[in-house]
């Protein structure tokens, strides 16, 4: 995807309304389709909309390997697999990658340990995932370094999205095929699931309130002076 196009997409919907900032931290990863699902109370176990039962079990184990249970609950207890299933089912471009990637992970587990990924112990999970995670971190670091340059070539042409319910929908993003022999498949899968797990966990009640200790959204008679001492 060329630079101009990438910037144009990034700007959609961000300038006109509230001058939001283009931070990675301001966006939920992988959600290009913006739907408002009704607030429905949970009734009974969740039925995945996209993943089959085996895939969902592998996904759940992977999410919990990324954010495990410690003194606070992990990804599964926080409902992260449900979140990931929802996002992937609503955003078709992730589907081939998620499916092929989970199949690859399961295959690796069988090859290396002759067991399902869901049956690996923590040391085995680490052995399998660490090199992939390291590669993801390396790519991110290189991308950050490459950003120290200013884009001056070409004119940026952009629109601000009109999201009136009556306006025509934006064209669908064409899913990129994720062939099983894509050498980058493990890294792409891990990046996708890690990003979705982080978003899902730290926006959950468990992750935000219990783990991180969020205590805002309340009334303060006055804003307190800082009492934290450095060092």
């Amino acid at each position: 995807m060329n630079e101009t196009r990438r910037h144009a997409i990034k700007l959609l919907g961000t300038v006109g309304l509230t001058c939001a900032f283009p931070f990675a931290g301001d966006e939920l990863y992988g959600q290009h389709v913006h739907v408002t699902l009704a607030q429905t109370p949970a009734t009974g176990p969740y039925t995945p909309a996209f993943f089959d039962a085996a895939e969902y079990a592998t996904l759940s184990s992977l999410a919990n390997a990324i954010i495990p249970t410690t003194i606070t609950p992990g990804a599964v207890a926080a409902g992260v697999p449900e979140y990931i299933d929802r996002v992937v089912s609503l955003n078709a471009e992730h589907q081939p990658l998620a499916r092929a990637g989970l199949a690859w992970l399961e295959g690796q587990s069988q090859t290396k340990f002759s067991r399902a990924f869901t049956a690996l112990d923590e040391a085995q999970q680490v052995e399998l995932l660490q090199p992939i995670s390291d590669a993801v971190d390396r790519q991110q670091r290189d991308a950050q370094r490459a950003r120290f340059r200013t884009e001056t070539a070409g004119t940026l042409v952009y629109y601000v999205a009109i999201t009136d319910k009556t306006s025509p929908a934006r064209p669908a993003v064409v899913p990129r095929p994720a062939p099983a022999n894509d050498p980058d498949l493990p890294v792409r899968l891990f990046r996708l699931i890690k990003n979705l797990t982080a978003d899902g966990y730290y926006t959950s009640r468990v992750g935000l309130l219990e783990e991180l200790g969020y205590n805002g959204n309340t009334m303060l008679a006055r804003f307190p002076e800082c009492t934290i001492r450095e060092q």
Partner: peptide, 14 residues
């Protein structure tokens, strides 16, 4: 602080 999207950029897992 209702969102910690930056957590995606932290290295590692587990």
């Amino acid at each position: 602080r209702r969102f910690a999207g930056w957590a995606k950029t932290i290295n590692g897992f587990g």
